[in-house]
Amino acid sequence: MDDLPPLQKIAISGSTLASLIHRFSTTTSTSSIDGLLFGHVTYVTSLNLSDDSSETSQTLLATVTGFLASSSFRDTSGQINTSSLRRLIPNSTSLLGWFSGRRRTPLRPSLREFSITSSLSSLSQFSSSIKPSPISNSNSNPFPSSTTLSSLNFNPCLFFLLASPISDQTSHIHTHDYRAYQFLSGTHSFNPVSLDIINIGPAFRDHYGSFIPNSPFPALDCQLSYSPMVRDDDEERLSKMKQASKDQRELDACVEGLEVGKLSKLMGSEAKNYTQSLEDLYLKMLVKIENLTTLVEQSSARVLEQETHNKKLRQKIMRSAE
């Protein structure tokens, strides 16, 4: 762990950060929120060109691609529960660290945050492999130490801290501060790392080159036929088959009669008519998405309503209990 090159910076897409801050600012039931950060780590080779020598130095770039707000991976004193942590990590996703957001507090890691970060970054079983940098890949001669370096793993040692200022009551503007750290196990300390917000624009063109999809197509099991070897639990098998046919039906509903087989019509004389029907399909899909967003908006409002209600009830209980 200590032999790893330091993190040069942490990259996060604007939308992921915005979503994180949104999640933090809209939490009404508790004054704090925390959860896990997912993403990937890549090597970055930076070239220092000068007249007499050119040096390449190896640093790491951590890209945060997603988060999950849930504090069930730890108890209230800050001990990590590894089995529930494992359950929270989706398949083929690497855990980079965690985040903590607390309202109206100073933007410095707290006693508990230190404990959690320290424990989390010592869990080597949750470490992720470091991907080689795209630049060195394309080079015919990758750096010589590449094999030894790539065998090293990156423990979940990232920590994002979100806080809102203490004196922010008079204004109607809500400020949210954030800071990113890498926890160094060697010195047992937080190392502040600059946060790069990826946006669209020429300055971020590199990121398209190194793009790694992080939301794979959901693993829908559409095969109705089942392996004859597995016959141990008929009931379970039946429910799985039901789920599979349900998934298939949902997929079919989305495409509405435009099966893969008909793609051949894109060629030849029928192509013109077929394009028209494809465009209709896209239009319908857009309408559906619009409906879906309205639905999400309405349900969020209802969740907020319920949370406020719960909060009031809790306060009532606390007032009457003591």
Binding site: S29, T30, S31, S32, T76, S77, R102, T105, P106, R108, P109, S110, L111, R112, E113, K311, R314, M318
Partner: peptide
């Protein structure tokens, strides 16, 4: 700074030095 959470009394307070 001593940080409690009024909504969750069972959570021990956090301290920010």
């Amino acid at each position: 700074d001593i940080v409690y959470d009024a909504e969750s009394p069972t959570t021990p307070p956090d301290v920010i030095f």
